[in-house]
Design a protein around this nucleic acid. Sequence first.
RNA 1: CGAGGAGUGGCGCAGCUUGGCAGCGCGUCUGCUUUGGGAGCAGAAGGCCGCGGGUUCGAAUCCCGCCUCCUCGACCA
Length: 502
Amino acid sequence: MGNELGITPRGENYSQWYTDLVHKAELADHSVVRGCMVIRPHGYAIWELMQGALDNMFKETGHVNAYFPMFIPKSFLSKEAEHVDGFAKECAVVTHHRLKNAEDGSGVIVDPEAKLEEELVIRPTSETIIWNSYKGWIQSWRDLPVMINQWANVCRWEMRPRLFLRTAEFLWQEGHTAHATYDEAEEEALTILGVYKRFAEEWMCVPVIDGIKSENEKFAGADHTYTIEALTQDFKAIQAGTSHHLGQNFAKAFDVTFQSKEGKLEHVYATSWGVSTRLVGTLIMVHSDDNGLVAPPKLAPVQAVIIPIGRGEKLEAVLDAAAGMEKEIRAQGWDGGIIRTKIDKRDKSPGFKFNDWEMKGACIRIEIGPRDLENGKCVLASRLGGEKIECDIKDVAAKTAEMLSELQTGLYNQALAHREANTSRVDTWDEFKAAFEGEKAGGFIVAHWDGTSETEEQIANETKATIRCIPREPLDPADAEPGKCILTGKPSTQRVVFAKAY
RNA sequence: CGAGGAGUGGCGCAGCUUGGCAGCGCGUCUGCUUUGGGAGCAGAAGGCCGCGGGUUCGAAUCCCGCCUCCUCGACCA
């Protein structure tokens, strides 16, 4: 830890800052199980808000929720060759179904007689088990499209976990759709990409580049993969969401066919798409500061915190006023809901509470004490900027709502400015290498590439930078002009986005 | 899997070199005073020093074996 009270500053050790913040803001703990985390109520509240917003968007675009088992027969994984290659190395496997007491009294052991006939893989993703079901549900063009989402946990046995960003078990949503035509599946993949981009930018205040993954980086088993990519404060890219067009790969692997209007038997076209609790990590990485969590108002568990100041008889009057304010602020509403408001009545000093709520990312802090009460005033401070402003008590609800709106746009603008300041174009290999060397190096580097996997691999080997995506819309019109590959000098049709990634 | 580091009250750590009453800070509990940027004083509770073995009159400390975690690599839909 940086010191007893605060957290390690970002400039001193960014990784440590992130870990300190997650702990001190009470978002999550490391579990006793390696690679797994305990998501604490304050962190889970952010995830619930994300779920709520995304779930609405999925339903508005025609999807329904369902739930499939977490255990997948091992044989299912081998049905799609690329898919198993992509996940085999990180699967947890269930081999037995019973424990028993050891005969020597040393404790509990796995009962060797309870071995499963077919081992079960704990889902790293659910394509295989879901497509097994779809086979039974889809016979005719009338059964299509199938547009199902599930909220679930998945397990990927990662070698190097990091709270929220990469854990062995994580929470996510995964959408799995089936369509009659390639074009329809393509439209679906892009619709979801749009949902993800809108969620990142409008809810999380995180500007993202949306684009298509290179062959090296695409999902195992996909025809092609779309992604949204964000930039952190330490100049690395975070893949924040992906939407895959699976073509007919899984339909062929699981033999899912339908009779078309013309009476022909055809394999269906598929998509899958997901975002995970990694979004919580992304949120932290993009916005938070040396005083703790900075949460965008739409996703902040506490949008306004009222801190009553005073003691004895005077405190009673202050608490009365605070209760009245809380009621008005909630009723005021913002963004189509109540303003999530809390009065901090803990027996702690005001200074402690100020710091504590900054750590936990409360958007607006409202101070009220005897001094204010006499004048009919209170003091407001936004989590961004933080300067105190005086406000009439009668106006506090309206002012709070106004400040939430300012914070929501302010955070987005700040993150966008950071991304723009750290997005650059280079045209020579020396410049390119230099861009990724040293402590503060990185950011998005927009450069020409000859389109081959070999070149991408060589670039990654020498610089650790990978192609984050080929943007759907050029970030700058000139990016769409042809040029020469940064490494090989061969012809390139357009610039692509490179970065070191989390 | 490779290289480093660390396991000692709830949390963070010192003590180990040179064996001799298990300590400190934070937190917790009690009381009094305090309250506009992490309050003060007084008192209290709380530990099988990661596990197993060895050396010794005596081991947190020395020796051997094992386990776990962290950091940095490698790996990574």
